[in-house]
Design a protein around this nucleic acid. Structure first.
Lengths: 155, 155
DNA sequence: GGAATCCGTACCGAATCGGTCCTGTTTCTT
DNA sequence: AAGAAACAGGACCGATTCGGTACGGATTCC
């Protein structure tokens, strides 16, 4: 439910990896190797993030990718929006005029309310917060089960 | 992006319709007619909402559906969770043990953070808030373009 | 007993997703 | 100046999911 695509998952993994090494730049094969993700997907995802200006790219030999901004200034809202495309639609959201269900459909405005709530929630989380601090205290170790990508408001 | 399915959209339309007439109960054909939605889908959606105990059903002749609880006590989190299924997974979220990416994947825990943020955002919106109050003041009329179902954190 | 109504489930076409590949274009190195 | 390294942009394909339909069964009212 309210699931993000695998590519978005990949994107976040890549971004956090970049955020963890701000001094370096990475090319696509390096990132694929270091994250364990399939190269073609990594490449595709990096392109997309660059187009949305979350990443800065450098072409040619010795080219590569780096964060376009400090990780603390990149919000998860921007990341997810960039990768999942601008909007998800059910039919009539962009038919910015009449709608045959108009009279039967008073919920329209309240979707904006939900949109807004989710948007704000994601805006409060920065990429810097997603990249885990390097833990040296063993007692504070977190349980890490694997890569997950569920956004589940399940109770 | 982070899109809900059409069925969830339908479900919310149906629930708000029910919430707007708490005294009545409706059978599936009535709801389909009054909301303008296709009957088979309406039926399917109502069943699902019943199974998740958001609706109370009554079988047999003169049967029908009604809200299982007051609209103010039903949160959008519950509604969406009920219709979109409990969880959306990318591979290894339920492989509750090892994960081959374990060392490469420090983001796992932070997904919980995002999950939690979205969950809380949706928990703050009740069904009662989605069903628009009957407006008698023309000056306060809202612009209603149609049915929409985008959950877009686009900036 | 019959009709109305909900319940479960199987099924199908269409769209989207995950993934690959190929052909540019740019830039560094020698 | 030439060639290699790396990004850029699409086209393409199989598999899954989504939107929608249909049918047989169970339950309750009249």
């Amino acid at each position: 439910m309210i699931r993000i695509t695998k590519q978005t998952d990949y994107g976040i993994v890549l971004l956090t990896h970049l955020a963890a090494h701000p001094e370096r730049t990475f090319n696509a094969p390096e990132l694929a190797a270091e994250t364990g993700l399939p190269l073609p997907m990594v490449s595709k995802t990096l392109k997309m993030l660059t187009r949305e200006s979350l990443l800065a790219s450098h072409r040619g030999a010795r080219g590569g990718y780096g964060l376009a901004q400090p990780a603390s200034e990149i919000t998860m809202n921007r990341v997810i929006s960039a990768l999942e495309g601008p909007i998800a639609i059910t039919e009539c959201i962009d038919t910015s005029g009449e709608c045959s269900h108009e009279r039967l459909c008073p919920t329209r405005n309240n979707w904006q309310r939900i949109n807004q709530a989710l948007k704000e929630a994601l805006d409060r989380i920065s990429l810097a917060e997603m990249a885990p601090p390097v833990r040296t205290d063993p007692g504070a170790r977190l349980v890490q089960l694997g890569r997950g990508a569920a956004i589940a408001p399940a109770a």
